[in-house]
Design a protein around this nucleic acid. Structure first.
Lengths: 355, 355
DNA sequence: CTGAAAGCGCTTACAG
DNA sequence: CTGAAAGCGCTTACAG
């Protein structure tokens, strides 16, 4: 392996100068820089990240923690974050919790992150008080994406889950539905995090706005997955007269609902309307009406906010949005950056059949 | 930050002993090890990966290169690889090419990987001769997943794409179809890689086995995506009389086909049968018949094969399978490890309508 | 079984 | 603008 000394020798300068020239520091003459670059090129030199990081005190790496990379929202967020980091010369260290409590502990509670990364992106990761304490002690910059417990001083990028749920419910109400069921995550579902609470809240609020009492028998908790949607819908149907519409807390659950309804011989939307939240890649294929949330944009924005203080020259990190004004050191909680959602009507929602 | 010296001082031993004790080396007395562990625990000590790697010459990191993390197959592979690596103490460095030629070059052609990782997993990544040369010069252990150009000395884990395509085509033939269209990737589609060639080959072979001539007008090239499937199917329909069945080279294309057929007023499977390859998470939701391939298993197996020579104690890396027998240094090409596929019949395939 | 010392390959004040 | 030297926090022969 060619090392910095080799380049220095070939270019006829010191290693310090090679280091400066290669990193584009301004304190190198143009002629010297040229010679160094030529030498590095000729020797196919690549810096040793470990040596560089040890000496420089920066890791050039960002950690991203997600519950499950294979879920649409998390995969899309990771892709956009990776893209941005890559273009800015950062490595991405992926932690896919996958429901493994042991992994969660190891990642969040130990100092392992501290010496390994410059910054952290936490996506929809449930945090216990001990986790928050540990993360705060790390004293690393971080961002959270999606709702739930935050870390003091860390900005948060998210959508307004209550409003998104209200939009979905309003769409069904406007179509004339009154027997509207809700299927959502349960307290043990780490994929649902606290998201399901906000979405249930929005659902109930919107029903009340129309004077429709919430009916517990139309509200089923399950997992934030296709299977969860199938199970919740089966449970719903087992309880008696089917609702005329189902608002699923996420598209994957909505897809499960469509599956369960089909298996029960019910047609969508003729017998039952279905709407979700997300605008999953496959929502169009299934003709699923939904409230679209910008997943890639949330990832990109989070990455920008994170790298900005690290000296990465990025364009306006808050394009047209309300920036978090709190100072990272202060006690005032940083207000979240809210990205907009939007109703997408497809074929899975229609007026209820006349009696 | 607490460092190794702090632990050594508290435990009353040298840093060398702390290093040995913490890594579980056998040359430490039980009593000493206990004291060291207690001191490390008390100080919340975590080793600095960069210092450790620089001094030890190992990175404890594996790179995985995928075309697009958001595609079902690649996301599933990454998840299973991450899981296995995590359990064995390795970090995962994610490179999502995302069609960026620049990223491809940087990742594959420079020595940047060399000093950064101990091993490489390449998933369905097209390799030019210059890439292969560069990777070979790295002299790092590696594995490729999925078909295509291999790297000399690297094992390959994959399915038999020709056989999978024959299985899909055979299913349609057995149902009585003779006008069977094929939609697949084009040469410029980096997601299709060389996979589409094998699958087309299997399609044609199986037709010929029944004495059915291949009809170029029933064979459309597009992208290995939902949109690609939509476009290919639209093109197919624009060419005249529709086929009675479509064999899509992957489930995402099949889903696009279902969408395009629906938009054209054609019913699946009454008017046109559709089958894919993959067994995508959502295949069940859509009632899509397919030839299932084990994505997570391919990732797991690749990770095992890779870590085995690195001294990770894993169970039999080839459970019941033909192991690659070639030696890594020899010139003899390592035979690929082939994982089985299996036909999954759902609602998207049926006999053609009687005329 | 344990320690002193060298060294991993860089970057960073400090001088000049 | 450039270089000599120290130092980043570990691990690894080498002795004992």
């Amino acid at each position: 392996m060619t090392k910095i000394d080799d380049v220095a020798r070939l270019a006829g300068v010191s290693t310090a100068t090679v280091s400066r020239a290669l990193r584009g520091l301004p304190t190198v003459s143009a002629a010297t820089r040229r010679r160094v670059l030529a030498a590095a090129e000729q020797l196919q030199y690549a810096v040793s990240p470990n040596a560089s990081r040890l000496a420089g005190g920066k890791t050039g790496t960002v950690a991203i923690v997600v519950p499950r990379i294979t879920r649409w929202f998390f995969g899309t967020v990771v892709e956009s974050v990776e893209d941005f980091l890559d273009q800015n010369g950062y490595d991405l260290l992926l932690y896919n919790l996958g429901g493994r409590e042991q992994t969660r502990q190891r990642v969040l509670r130990t100092a392992s992150l501290h010496k390994r990364v410059d910054a952290i992106i936490l996506v929809a990761t449930p945090l216990r008080p001990a986790d928050v304490t540990a993360l705060t002690k790390l004293a690393l910059p971080g961002v959270t994406i999606s709702s739930g417990s935050g870390v003091p001083g860390w900005p948060c990028v998210r959508i307004d889950d209550v409003a998104a749920a209200r939009t979905a419910t309003r769409h069904l109400l406007d179509l004339g539905h009154t027997r509207i069921a809700h299927i959502s995550g349960d307290p043990d579902d780490e994929l649902a995090f606290t998201t399901h609470l906000d979405r249930r809240h929005g659902y109930q609020e919107e029903l009340r706005a129309d004077g429709i009492p919430t009916d517990p028998s139309l509200d089923v908790e399950s997992q934030f997955t296709i299977d969860g949607g199938i199970r919740a819908t089966a449970e719903l149907l087992a309880r008696g007269e089917p609702p005329t519409a189902i608002f699923a807390a996420c598209d994957e659950m909505a897809m499960g609902a469509m599956t369960a309804l089909r298996d029960a011989g019910l047609r969508v939307p003729q017998d039952v309307s279905v709407i979700g939240i997300d605008d999953h890649d496959l929502a169009g294929v299934l003709g699923l009406s939904t409230v679209a949330q910008p997943a890639a944009e949330q990832g990109l924005l989070a990455a920008r906010i994170l790298l900005d203080p690290l000296g990465v020259r990025t364009a306006d990190p808050y394009p047209g949005l309300v920036p978090p004004t709190g100072d990272a050191d202060g006690d005032s909680p940083t207000p979240p950056v809210i990205l907009p959602t939007r109703l997408v009507v497809r074929e899975s929602t229609a007026p209820p059949r006349a009696h």
